[in-house]
Write a protein that binds this DNA or RNA. Structure first.
Lengths: 157, 157
DNA sequence: TTGCTGAGTATAGAAAAGTAAACTCATGTC
DNA sequence: GACATGAGTTTACTTTTCTATACTCAGCAA
């Protein structure tokens, strides 16, 4: 007899996001798209990712609507596919900025980061931060997590 | 002969962060810590994660300084270890908030999210966003990535 | 018509993760 | 002293993921 009064952790937005972007290479592919890559060969060369995994990840990202395919044509060659980011993909930027920022703080080279991110136009460095709807900057310790509409408990076994 | 004039992608803060938190279960363990779990048995029960992997991930998170061990004592039992988050671990919150937010937007149940995050005290919902040092809210499209102090090109092969 | 190129597919082997169960170890209760 | 408990470790096996390399395929060019 075992009364498990635990929160049902399968019903979680973090876990569900990780189902899409949690596999190896996926976030690094997106990073390369942000940095300007768009072709199969670009990703392969810069990332050193195996071709079959690269093909599988790109296919999945397109199916999920995070990337979309377009075509390009080099003079003297036939049309080939390229990959561009969609608005749904752009919405992953805050999460990846958070990872970037943590790495810059705790795992960068002694000289500093390899890439800097700036606000285009104003030129000032950018960072990911947490704000509440009223515009206050929120410290991580001041975030309160409360059950939402889809909150469920685990079934007893 | 192969002149690779590619950016050296190994020297990247995103990739380095993923080396620490990119394995399966790691971020979910941190989520449980934020939601209040601290004991080996809590994680095992709520996550359904295999014990050997759980032990390995906890050990790694402690080695990295993201979690720390303390002891607790139930009356009538001996002291046992528990896991608490460190400031270095709290600095991962913006990244995980970004993942949570994306999942809430694109992969939540029809009724809505399972958990809501609020600013303690003011009570307003919080979200991860990108700002520049001058305080402007920055759209993902307006982020410019430029080479930083540790920028390197790949060696030609 | 032979070769070249970019974008894949196919396949085989290695590594990691998942599953399940047994075992250890310290200490507190009966 | 015998047993219970939480926090692991160990072992054995299956499945999935990762890596590396070879192969295919379409169209352009010589």
């Amino acid at each position: 007899m075992d009364t498990r009064l635990d929160r049902d952790a399968s019903n979680c937005s973090i876990a569900r996001t990780l189902e899409v972007v949690g596999e190896k290479w996926t976030i690094l592919i997106l990073r390369e798209v942000w940095y300007g890559s768009s072709r199969f060969g670009d990703f392969e060369r810069v990332l050193g990712c195996p071709r079959n995994l690269l093909a599988a990840r790109l296919r999945m990202l397109v199916e999920e609507g995070i990337l979309a395919t377009e075509t390009y044509k080099e003079p003297g060659s036939r049309s080939r596919p390229k990959y561009v980011i969609t608005p749904k993909g752009m919405d992953l930027v805050p999460a990846v900025m958070g990872l970037l920022q943590w790495g810059d703080r705790y795992r960068a080279d002694p000289e500093g980061p390899a890439m800097l991110t700036r606000h285009r136009g104003c030129g000032a460095p950018v960072d990911a931060q947490i704000r509440c709807e009223r515009g206050h900057a929120v410290h991580a310790e001041d975030i309160e997590s409360v059950p939402g509409p889809a909150f469920r408990m685990k079934a007893a076994e």
